[in-house]
């Protein structure tokens, strides 16, 4: 187990290093200097600015300085928003995005599992077909389309929910529905198919023969084993939800990390793009790591210390 964790940590480090290097290549390969747009600066000011951002150093020194700033978690100043550092933006935006993300995951996991169980128990019945049609639709409709439709129908036409900003629980309903539908559908399909498989196993027949209540069979015996695949795809789902927050926050004008990120892309605010990408990547890679470890601990059939990774 320890050996596996160490190996995974090493791979994480390499993956992160690739991201950091990619962002550095991004910075130096932008045509011209990031400061070029400042009109009316004379040469001395330009020089001073370059010195201030270490742009006058050769590339390898810049690279080392950049690595150092990443390690010390100092992502530097924003170019387009004066007197703002990337850390300021992260500090302001991340808690909101995190809140949105956590609630979305909870909603997606619970509703997805319940939908999957119901579909599996009513296998080939009308409820099953309805739940699975809903799931395929949920996977097929992109979250930004769903978000716009929700706004148009529920906010503009019928004025049930308020939109824009992040000030009350009512404001959270539509963004969370838009963001959670896709992952919910994936979880529902997965839960259904593993649940169907588990329900045919001998120990379930045994439990039924013993006279346990159906409720107990499903929730105490079957579900525990049916949920393992859901744990494995949590990493991918997290990545999807995280990138989903970019568009959702943009559409609903939620002042989270995603909104700043999209703005920085549109304004070509390179330090913000770089800092946010590195931050997001580190966050996601760490989450994937946690999911993997959790999987190893939860599933007794996996002996990760014997042979690392999947086969």
């Amino acid at each position: 187990m320890l050996k596996y964790i160490l190996k995974r940590l090493l791979i994480m480090a390499v993956t992160l290093w690739i991201i950091v290097t990619l962002t550095f290549v991004l910075m130096v390969s932008i045509p011209g200097s990031p400061l070029n747009e400042e009109r009316g600066t004379n040469e001395t000011v330009q020089k001073n600015l370059e010195a201030h951002y270490n742009l006058d150093e050769p590339y390898h020194i810049q690279y080392l300085l950049y690595l150092k700033s990443i390690v010390t978690l100092d992502f530097g100043p924003s170019i387009k928003q004066p007197n703002q550092t990337v850390n300021d933006l992260l500090g302001r935006g991340f808690p909101i995005s995190f809140e949105l993300g956590i609630v979305t995951i909870l909603v997606a996991v619970f509703s997805g599992i319940i939908l999957g169980i119901v579909a599996a128990l009513k296998h080939n019945g009308i409820i099953d077909y309805m739940a699975m049609s809903l799931a395929v639709l949920g996977i097929s409709i992109p979250n930004f389309v769903l978000a716009t439709l929700l706004i148009q129908q529920l906010a503009v036409k019928y004025e049930i929910f308020p939109v824009a900003t992040w000030s009350s629980p009512a404001h959270m309903v539509l963004p969370i529905i838009a963001l959670a539908t896709g992952p919910m559908a994936i979880i529902a399909r997965l839960t259904r198919s593993t649940m169907l498989e588990v329900l045919t196993q001998d120990y379930i027949k045994m439990a039924r023969a013993k006279g346990l209540s159906p409720w107990k069979i499903v929730f105490k015996h079957a579900l525990k084993n049916a949920l393992m695949p859901v744990v494995t795809i949590m990493g991918t789902l997290l990545a999807g939800i995280l990138t989903g927050t970019f568009v959702i926050e943009k559409i609903f004008a939620i002042p989270g990390m995603g909104k700043y990120f999209v703005e920085s892309i549109n304004q070509r605010d390179y330090p913000v793009i770089m800092g946010t990408t590195v931050f997001y990547s580190a966050f996601l890679i760490f989450m994937l790591f946690l999911v993997d470890i959790a999987y190893g601990i939860l599933d007794p059939r996996i002996k990760i210390h014997k042979k690392g990774g999947e086969s």
Partner: peptide
Amino acid sequence: MMRIIEILYGLPYLLVVILLLVV
């Protein structure tokens, strides 16, 4: 070859795509 895949697999797909397109 599998180690290389494991490293690439850890890269957040859409973030890398966004980064590449910005470049």
